[in-house]
Design a protein around this nucleic acid. Structure first.
Lengths: 340, 340
DNA sequence: GCGAGGGATGAATACGTATACACTTCCAGA
DNA sequence: TCTGGAAGTGTATACGTATTCATCCCTCGC
C-alpha cells in the first residue's frame, strides 16, 4: 500500500484492537505477554513506525528541542552547535535549528507559539533582542546557553567570562606588559560586556593604564581583527600585547600582524577567547580563555529537561569557570624583553 | 487561560464557527469580507497562532525539512549548513538537523519513517551507508546535495569535483611542477573519489608521473594534513607542490610546512579543495578549487520543493562547475624556479 | 410569484494516536 | 456457592485543525 500503515491497520492484522497496539507501543504493562509478542511480530513484519505527529498531538510532547543560534560558520558557534546536537541526540531528542540572523523577527515570534518543540535553547541572547522575553512568554521551557541575561528569571548556563577575562589581563600584567591593546566588540550581550570589563578590571587593579588609543571596537568578522591589528601595530610604538574577546578576532589579529611583518610573540603577544579547536593549530598557536563548551551544553540541556518535567521548579543560573589555555602566542620570556 | 487558545475558542469569541476561523486562516476566498475582518481582529487580539502539529496532521505537510549532515565543525560543512539554513528559512521552511555522526543507525531509520518532515536533504552520502537507500524507501522526497551517488535514481546537485581536480592538476603541471604530492582520503563518497581521480588524470594526461611515495592517504582532521606535510616535506627531495582534497587538510599541510620551516609557495605550492572563507585568510592564503555552495543549495532545495509538489516527476541530476580560485599558496613564478 | 442557483456559513467528520472507561473472564477468599 | 477484584481487552473519545457536505438566505430570471 502506498499510504504508511497505521496502528489500526496493524491491529486488524494482529486480531486485536487499536488500543492494544497502542499499549504495546507505549510499553503499557497491562497487556498479556503472548498478545504483546504477537503484536510486536506484526509490527516488525510491517516495518511499522508510529506517526510522530499524531503521537505528539495526543501527548503534547514532540521530543524535539528548538535551538536558536547565530553565525554557524564561526568556529566557536560551530563547536557549540555540534555539542548541542551530540547531547540532544544522545537523549533521543531531535533538534530544530533556527538561525536568528536569517529569520525575520515575526517568523521567530510565530514559531515560538506553535508548540512544535518541547523546549527552547537560546545561545545568542542579547540585551537589545526580545527573543528571550518572547520565548519565556510563550510558556515553553527555555534555557539560555553561553550567553545570559542578568536578572532574567530563566535557567541559564554561562561561562564566567568576567573572571576569564580578568585572568587574561592579570596574566599579561604579571608578565610585565604595560602597553596593552584591547580589540573589543560593542557589548550587545553579557559575553562581550564581561570579556571587556573583566580585562579592564585586571589592568586597573594592577595599576596598568589602558590607553584609549589602544582600544579598538570592531565587528565580529576575521577581517575586522585583521584591520585592528594593522592599525595598532603600525604605530611608532605599538602595544606589546593584544587581548581580544573572541578567537575569530584573534585569528584576524594574528593575520594582521603577519601581514605587516610583526612577529608573535616576539613583537607582540596575542590572547583570544573561546579556546576553539583552531586555536591549537600551528598557524595560530593561540593562547585563549577556554569556554567549557561541553559542560555548558551538558548542564544546560539537563536544566531544560528538568524544567520540561517540572515547569514550576525554581530557575537556576549556573556559572562555569573559564581557565586560560596558554600557547605560543604568549610564550613566556624575560620581563625585560617584554618591556623593550 | 493557561492553555493556548484554539481556533474553536476564538470562533466562539468572534461569534462564528470553527470552520469559518479555519477558512480565514487558510485564506479561503469563500468568506465574507466583513466576517473575515472581524475574525482577523479577534485572532490578532488573542495573539493566536495555529497549532502546527494539528495542522500538519490534517494537511500531511509539516513545512519542515530534515537535513542530515556530518562534522558541523569543519569549515566547509559549516558554510554548507549555514547556506541551507538561509535558503530554507527564506522559503518559510523549518530545518531539523541530524548529525549522522552522533545518531545511531537505528535512530535514523526510525526518524525516516515518522513523517515529521516533508523532505530530506542529505549532504554526506557515502557508498557504504544505506542512508540514501533508506531515505528513498521511506517515500519521503529526498535530494542529495554536495555528495552524490552515481546512478542513484534520486535528485542530486553536486559540484564537478572531477573537473575541478583535473584543472588543479593541470594548473600545477602547466606551471612546471613534476614532483607533486597528493594528500588524499579513502574514497567513501563521490567527492573524495573524484577529487582524487580527476587530479591523477590531469597528471597522467600530461605525462607527469605521480610517485606512489608522494601519495599519502589520511583521515579528515587538520592534524592529519599536518602530519602528511611533515612526512612529505622532510624528505631529502621533497615534492614542489602538494594538492589535497579538502581545505581543512590543506590548512593542516600549510601548518605542517610551517612547522618544519618549509616556505609556501617558495619551497612548495599547496592547493586545497572547497574554497572556504578561511582559505582567503592571510594565514593560509590558499589556492583552492571552489565549491559553488550557494548554487548547490539553492538548486537543490528547488529540486526538493518541486519533488514535494510532484513526487512522480523524473529525477534530475545537476552538476555545477568548480572553478579554481588562485591565491598566494601557489603564486606563479618562473618555470625554472619550480623545477629547481 | 416562483424556482434555480450562488454565496456564506455551520455541522460533522477525519487525520493517527493515547487513554479513560466499560466489559469479560477467571480465580481467590468467605 | 457466591462475591470481589484483578488481569486483559475492546469501545469510545479527545487532541486542534482542514475540509466536505448540508443548510440557509438572498437574488435573479422567467
Amino acid at each position: 500500500m502506498t499510504r504508511p500503515p497505521t496502528s489500526r491497520d496493524l491491529a486488524r492484522l494482529a486480531g486485536v484492537s487499536q488500543a492494544t497496539v497502542s499499549r504495546v507501543l507505549t510499553n503499557n504493562p497491562k497487556v498479556n505477554p503472548e498478545t504483546r509478542a504477537r503484536v510486536l511480530q506484526v509490527l516488525k513484519d510491517a516495518n511499522y513506525t508510529p506517526n510522530a505527529l499524531a503521537r505528539a498531538m495526543k501527548t503534547g510532547r514532540t521530543d524535539t528541542i528548538g535551538v536558536f543560534m547565530t553565525r554557524v560558520t564561526s568556529p566557536f558557534h560551530a563547536e557549540l552547535l555540534d555539542e548541542i546536537g551530540r547531547v540532544l541526540s544522545s537523549m533521543g531528542l531531535h533538534m530544530i535549528l533556527w538561525n536568528i540572523e536569517h529569520d525575520p523577527e515575526e517568523t521567530v515570534a510565530a514559531v515560538l507559539q506553535q508548540r512544535l518543540v518541547d523546549g527552547f535553547v537560546l545561545t545568542s541572547a542579547t540585551y537589545d533582542s526580545k527573543l528571550h522575553t518572547m520565548a519565556l512568554a510563550s510558556g515553553t521551557p527555555t534555557v539560555l546557553l553561553h550567553r545570559g541575561i542578568d536578572g532574567l528569571d530563566c535557567d541559564q548556563v554561562v561561562g564566567d567570562n568576567w573572571q576569564g577575562a580578568y585572568d587574561a589581563g592579570r596574566y599579561l600584567v604579571d608578565a610585565g606588559h604595560t602597553d596593552i591593546g584591547l580589540v573589543t566588540l560593542r557589548a550587545t550581550g553579557n559575553t562581550s560586556r564581561d570579556r571587556d570589563a573583566g580585562f579592564r578590571a585586571a589592568l586597573a587593579d594592577a595599576g596598568v593604564k589602558l590607553k584609549p588609543s589602544n582600544v579598538i571596537t570592531v565587528g565580529v568578522p576575521h577581517a575586522d581583527g585583521h584591520a585592528a591589528a594593522e592599525k595598532l601595530l603600525s604605530r611608532k610604538k605599538p602595544p606589546t600585547a593584544i587581548y581580544t574577546i573572541t578567537d575569530l578576532l584573534a585569528f584576524g589579529i594574528l593575520d594582521g600582524a603577519r601581514a605587516i611583518g610583526a612577529h608573535v610573540p616576539d613583537d607582540v603577544w596575542v590572547i583570544g577567547f573561546d579556546n576553539t579547536d583552531m586555536a591549537a593549530w600551528e598557524s595560530f598557536d593561540l593562547t585563549s580563555v577556554e569556554q567549557p563548551v561541553h559542560a555548558i551544553v551538558e548542564t544546560g540541556i539537563d536544566l531544560l529537561r528538568d524544567r520540561i518535567a517540572d515547569p514550576d521548579r525554581p530557575t537556576q543560573i549556573v556559572t562555569l569557570p573559564c581557565p586560560l589555555a596558554i600557547r605560543g602566542s604568549t610564550a613566556n620570556r624575560p620581563l625585560s624583553a617584554a618591556k623593550d
